[in-house]
Simulated scan of single mutants.
Amino acid sequence: MVFGFRFSFSLSSLSPGANPCRRRDAPHHMRSTSLPCPVLSPLLDEIRSLRSSPRRDGFARINRLLAALDDLLHLPRTRDTLRRRPAWADRLFDDFLRLADAHGSFLSDAIALKQHLSEGRTAIRRGDPVRLASAARSHRRVEKEIAGLASSIKDLARSPTLAPGIGPDSEIAGIIAEAVAATAATSTEVFLSVSGWGSWMVWAMKRPSKKGLEEAEMVAMEKLEELMERIEGLEDGSGRVFRSLVNTRVTLLNMLTPSL
């Protein structure tokens, strides 16, 4: 991703709840004299929110960020900016493709995780250690795949270098760059949050042979059921993000394609 764009605000300069459209006391504070506040404020709020706590309702807040970004992308000034910087616009288009690919792959992995968790519960219920061990191995393989997805987009999560601005185009470029970085950083954190879930199946394989066996099985099955519900929520959330990312790429394509 291109981080050479510089613009006239810094996300870190705002305290929580501050309104960037009303700050006029210092040139280095986040503000905009040229972008409409109803478009700018919600987007900056979502970027700040994701930066402060990326895992909490991460996918839902990414979706809100992308909805706010869509409003920015539909501004005529944004369209003109992107058309004046075709190399950067193309790279941005590729960045959203990478994010969409990562979420599309996560969806497939989430389905696999649910299957392995379900197989683990069945194996515990039937007292089948061979099947349980197989489910645990398969689950760990998928976890490694998801860790690979996180690694594949971690470079997008680096914040661009922000400095006092140079030209009006750099303001829009910087805002979009921050949105990409926040989306990638949060996606990475949520992807990695599933790491270690399969350890509950490993724990179940080491349960006591007689004393406490029934209680241990009950605890393991309840935990695996809880994890299945959590992965269903992540699957749904990532699916929404995936569709939003695809729509963002369509918006960019329409902006960059000359009208016939």
Score class of each variant (00 low, 15 high):
45 D>C: 02
45 D>V: 09
46 E>C: 07
48 R>C: 05
48 R>M: 14
49 S>R: 15
49 S>Y: 09
50 L>C: 10
51 R>K: 12
51 R>V: 07
52 S>F: 10
53 S>F: 09
56 R>I: 15
56 R>K: 14
57 D>N: 08
61 R>L: 02
62 I>H: 09
63 N>V: 14
65 L>V: 06
68 A>W: 04
69 L>G: 01
69 L>D: 01
69 L>M: 12
70 D>L: 15
71 D>K: 14
75 L>V: 03
77 R>H: 06
77 R>M: 14
78 T>K: 09
78 T>A: 07
80 D>V: 06
81 T>Q: 03
84 R>N: 14
84 R>P: 04
87 A>Q: 11
88 W>G: 11
88 W>T: 15
90 D>I: 09
91 R>S: 12
94 D>S: 06
98 R>T: 05
99 L>F: 01
100 A>E: 15
103 H>M: 13
105 S>M: 05
105 S>Y: 10
110 A>C: 11
111 I>V: 15
111 I>L: 15
112 A>F: 00
113 L>N: 04
115 Q>Y: 11
116 H>Q: 13
116 H>D: 06
117 L>R: 04
118 S>C: 04
120 G>I: 03
121 R>S: 02
122 T>E: 05
122 T>R: 04
122 T>N: 01
124 I>Q: 02
127 G>H: 02
127 G>V: 00
128 D>K: 01
129 P>D: 08
130 V>H: 09
131 R>Q: 12
132 L>D: 05
132 L>T: 08
133 A>F: 04
133 A>K: 12
134 S>P: 00
135 A>E: 02
136 A>S: 06
137 R>K: 13
138 S>C: 12
138 S>D: 10
138 S>F: 08
139 H>N: 03
139 H>W: 01
140 R>V: 08
140 R>P: 00
143 E>I: 05
145 E>D: 13
145 E>A: 12
147 A>N: 11
147 A>L: 11
147 A>K: 10
148 G>T: 11
148 G>I: 09
149 L>C: 06
150 A>D: 09
152 S>R: 07
153 I>C: 04
153 I>S: 04
